[in-house]
């Protein structure tokens, strides 16, 4: 077996042709791929929101107990938790890129 590049390219071409003939190269089905990733996203969205809300509520409750400011901080942090939940979901479904 030689490692000559032209021979490798020739092999790749013949392999691709053979796979084409045998019907092994299925054209990617964009609708199916989108449905699978949507299922994944759908399973994540709800938990992401609820988790941030729970963390906000717990942080507020804990700070209230430490600072004796019941119930002010819990109200504030519950709202912030909701904001963080929307932030989580936005990170999931929003435009991709460096820190939108």
């Amino acid at each position: 077996m030689t490692d000559a590049p032209e021979e490798g390219a020739d092999f790749d071409r013949r392999l691709a042709e053979a796979r084409q003939r045998q019907g092994l190269e299925k054209p990617a089905d964009p609708a199916k791929a989108a449905a699978t990733s949507l299922l994944g996203i759908g399973m994540r969205v709800g938990v992401e929101m609820a988790a941030a809300l729970a963390v906000g509520a717990f942080l507020g409750y804990w700070l209230d107990r430490v600072l004796h400011t019941k119930p002010l901080l819990m109200v504030v942090f519950l709202l912030l938790g909701g904001v963080a939940g929307v932030r989580n979901v936005w990170r999931l479904v929003g435009p991709k890129g460096p820190r939108p």
Partner: peptide, 20 residues
């Protein structure tokens, strides 16, 4: 405001990860 939101968002990761 944003730092608090981001910290809550970061802390919510293990919870959402495990609960899911």
């Amino acid at each position: 405001l944003i730092v608090v939101v981001e910290v809550i968002s970061y802390l919510s990761r293990p919870i959402s990860l495990s609960f899911r």
